[in-house]
Design a protein around this nucleic acid. Structure first.
Lengths: 202, 202
DNA sequence: GGTGCGTGTTACCGGTCAGTAACAACGGCA
DNA sequence: TGCCGTTGTTACTGACCGGTAACACGCACC
């Protein structure tokens, strides 16, 4: 029934012990990420999750609903990663800032499909799509956390540095998709360190 | 027949004196930009261009073909803008660099849908889509031009600055889509000037 | 007056899409 | 045993998708 855009049959590829809802959610996240939200159908998701379309619609009222739930789990994981910075380097905002840079670089290197939230914002052009508010809130939250980190690290122009680093990471993740791994995104770590040093020196 | 995603009927919205091919091309560019490539159908494009699907397919062998041609015109216009920098400030690479920054800021402010090339890279997930090579080549060309500009302006770490500014612009244009006009992208001009100053001071 | 090319029109193809209805089978639980 | 909530199965709807065939029309050019 469901077909992966490449042409191959779908393969059940998630923990079969979990409840259908969780299987659908994690499968949908993976497929949306790989093939785009508009590039994958609910039938394919259900089949890859080892269940069927009816069960999917019993748990998620619509495809847009499912998309929003997926993005919510993405946001939740992002928040957990932020928490880890302060756990790994308690009371050391400078170390946390550099960990943020390293984590960003690792993100870019590990997967060529960029940020799920930003990609969704590109793909879902409807200005009143329910996912838009979610994306906006999360992105704003991440930037504010970064600004607080910069301020705590003693940067005088903390807001400006946070904006700069935010744009650089966002740009690196989309540049990785358009010009590939060899492009500017490959130097994200070095560039970020240089920019931070410049702001600290000022 | 064709329907705009909003639900309204399509309206013919291009110069009716031009030949069908040109009308289709400019209409497709506009609709792809507003609703996404996967979000608009060839029927809608043809109707909005004041013609029909058959004529569209006589000029463009497939939808992917049409997409590629659209992106080529985007690339051509981008190249012309680059040329304008050296025309407006001949022999003054520093002025050209600042004009690049100002132009980028104006781009962000004028339209919330970001870069057509980057958006296409996000939307067209097929790794061997004919548009991917085009996008990659153009993006690489723009970065190289910027690097030459930075070097000519006397920046020692010209390559690194070019990468940084490239990512910042790319990020600003996608951030504008996800967090809105009030987000970090609003400060792109100030941030870029600060980064350039920091690289010049080093 | 003819000839051909570009264009318009209509109808169609097979496929995919999101979403729903009706019913059968399962599981635990009392 | 009977009950009930969850799940699976099948089939369906109506819409849209990219792409094509066949044919009629108009217009320039010779």
């Amino acid at each position: 029934m469901g077909k992966i855009p490449g042409g191959a049959e779908v393969a059940v590829s998630c923990c079969p012990t979990a409840r259908p809802r969780e299987r659908i959610l994690s499968t949908a996240r993976d497929l949306f990420r790989r093939y785009g939200i508009r590039g994958i159908g609910v039938d394919t998701i259900a089949e890859a999750a080892g269940t069927n379309k009816m069960t999917l619609y019993r748990h998620f009222g619509s495809k847009d609903d499912l998309v929003c739930e997926c993005l919510k789990t993405v946001a939740r994981e992002g928040s957990e990663i932020w928490d880890r910075f302060s756990v790994d380097h308690p009371g050391d905002p400078t170390a946390q800032l550099h960990q943020w840079v390293r984590y960003g670089a690792a993100c870019i290197a590990s997967d060529g499909r960029g940020c799920d939230l930003a990609n969704a914002a590109v793909e879902l052009t409807e200005p009143d799509h329910p996912a838009r508010r979610l994306i906006e809130d999360v992105k704003r939250d991440y930037r504010d956390r970064l600004a607080r980190l910069c301020a705590a690290a003693g940067v005088v122009q903390a807001e400006l540095l946070a904006d700069t680093l935010s744009l650089m990471l966002e740009g690196a993740r989309v540049s990785r998709q358009s010009v590939g791994v060899e492009g500017p995104s490959a130097r994200f770590l070095r560039m970020s360190e240089a920019v931070i040093a410049a702001f600290k020196g000022a």
